[in-house]
Design a binder for these strands. Sequence first.
DNA 1: GGTAGCGCGTTGAACGTTCAAAATCTGATT
DNA 2: AATCAGATTTTGAACGTTCAACGCGCTACC
Lengths: 357, 357
Amino acid sequence: MAGKPTLVSLARELGVSRQTISNALNAPHRVNVRTLERVLPAIEESGYRPHVAGRQLRTRRSRNLAMRLFASADGINGAILDRFLHALTEAAQRDGYRLTLFTAPDDEGEVAAIDELLSTADIDGFVLTSTHHDDARTAWLLEHDVPFVAFGRPWSSEDPFEAPHPWVDVDGGSGTSDATVHLLERGHRRIGFLGWPAGSGVGDDRRGGWQRALDAAGVDPATDELSLGVEDSVAEGARGARDLFARGATALVCASDSLAIGAVAAWRQGTPDASAEVPVIGFDDTPVAAALGLSSVRQPIEQVAEQTVTLLLKRFTGGAGGTAAPEHVLLPASLVLRTPDPHLLGLPPPGPGHPRP
Amino acid sequence: MAGKPTLVSLARELGVSRQTISNALNAPHRVNVRTLERVLPAIEESGYRPHVAGRQLRTRRSRNLAMRLFASADGINGAILDRFLHALTEAAQRDGYRLTLFTAPDDEGEVAAIDELLSTADIDGFVLTSTHHDDARTAWLLEHDVPFVAFGRPWSSEDPFEAPHPWVDVDGGSGTSDATVHLLERGHRRIGFLGWPAGSGVGDDRRGGWQRALDAAGVDPATDELSLGVEDSVAEGARGARDLFARGATALVCASDSLAIGAVAAWRQGTPDASAEVPVIGFDDTPVAAALGLSSVRQPIEQVAEQTVTLLLKRFTGGAGGTAAPEHVLLPASLVLRTPDPHLLGLPPPGPGHPRP
DNA sequence: GGTAGCGCGTTGAACGTTCAAAATCTGATT
DNA sequence: AATCAGATTTTGAACGTTCAACGCGCTACC
């Protein structure tokens, strides 16, 4: 009675052996239906839960996934990783897995932390985020035969669909392309792209979508003139946007909501009509964008998380121990259109001012 | 050679018993100095790491903490919990603990999840967040004798420092008080408070700080007139702020950055002077506030996390198993002053507009 | 009627660690 | 030289689970 029930204590109470209890739960087909009917309700009623440490010791499986928690650099765009974290926790939980967090100052530290976790805490698999060009982490994980799935393509020169490891990613280019098409339909012809300096896989991908849409529409892209790469911040976004508007852009597709917020401010500076449509589209559909009424490209993070877990679990149960070719999933982004509240980020009507101290 | 070293394999290799290796690592004083000198470097070199499942099975300790991951409702203010999560992971890691996440739809679900975690995965302790009035979770945890620390006071009528469980919290009232004093020093006399409907512990606490500062300065608070409680969103903040300004407020202290952002927009509507100081102060110093140049009250989240872990660990190692009185830590908030970039959330100079499509 | 096979259930062993008790060694004291 | 205390090391057992092997009873087949 006292203490939690174990296989042995339960077995004694029910007059069967521990293995029968274990089988009733894990391999019911091996147990006679009549015993099953007698034993299962009793187990249920006892509130028995297998102790993970015992199971882990024997099976070498922990039902534990791990992921590095990044410091959200900007905080605005960092929100996307927080959404991912939440969705991943839920997806893992649905499949009976838990998510353990760890931090690391850099990629090297992350590899060290993974190494440590592997040798102490049987973690079954890892989730990699923020993959980038020449990512040393994937190389290490592959070499050490560690099950993992990356959120993010390998941004190398080779075809990502030929990559030796599984990944899930969002087709950002399709998102910026949709955004561009939307602006074209609104009558814009000189649509600029406000992004980051060339070289970041994610940024180049988003820029590519914008360019493809312009090409497809037969509009002269004036690519070099109407595209700009700046640091990812609101202030830089405002500065960059002013520049692009000065070059004749009438609308902007941005690589992030941070940049877009800056761009909106810059645009409002030059367009005193409060009711005018705001021709700026951001990326990631962050809470700030929603709060300010900014249109933005949304990543299907919940699906990304779901797929990530699915691929990871396949990795564990995969037939001949991972001989199956790694799978790669590219999900489409979607455009979220909003009409900004004219009183936010907005213009003052020429009414009376407020009292001053 | 093949496979990871275990106590037994190491012992065989070094010609000592497993227990000696174990002692060398966990209780060096029990081992002869000469053996220690011989054995320790060899252990180090072997890369041996104790296997947590084995240890956990024997010691009933997992060195694992767990916390519920909330869906960040607003997303702007949710950022505070994400900061906490990060800091907590780091603090736990420093002390050799890991953090496991779980989700739950509500408090009842959280208790169920904790119950489940307790019976399967020896979790050593839990961290509770977002405590509120009449929190059923603390009652359950206390009753079941589960080690936990709350981030947040128990918002009941009794003296929180007499609470039967340990907690860490930030003195939000001191923050809004500082903010109010700052505005008083800038010459304001009619300072309003824009918060949430009465009844939320956190909100009432922040409102209390504002009121105390006004009382102390001998300024007629006109409490009812200049204080307003609305839903926590940017739009509601703008609406509420317009209301307060109309009642003669010249400055606002807000219970959140969401509200403050709305308030800034409302204020700009009525004050066409772009260079004027913005008499609005937010709460939580979220990334958005930083990006927009909004002054805000900052919670020392890193210290909160540090203290939370410290109290939790004390709970485990506490002399006679937790007979010591629970500890309560209240940390001061600090005021972060900023000058907003006049081009963000800003006014358009009456210059030429931008080209239109 | 022997035996092969199958269904079902049990037992022994092992995963890697630490606690508790027993065994051995060292040096000093009688 | 025998004894004892204390320091150091080793051994047995246990934590809770699952794998592998084994045992038993029954049926079917030749």
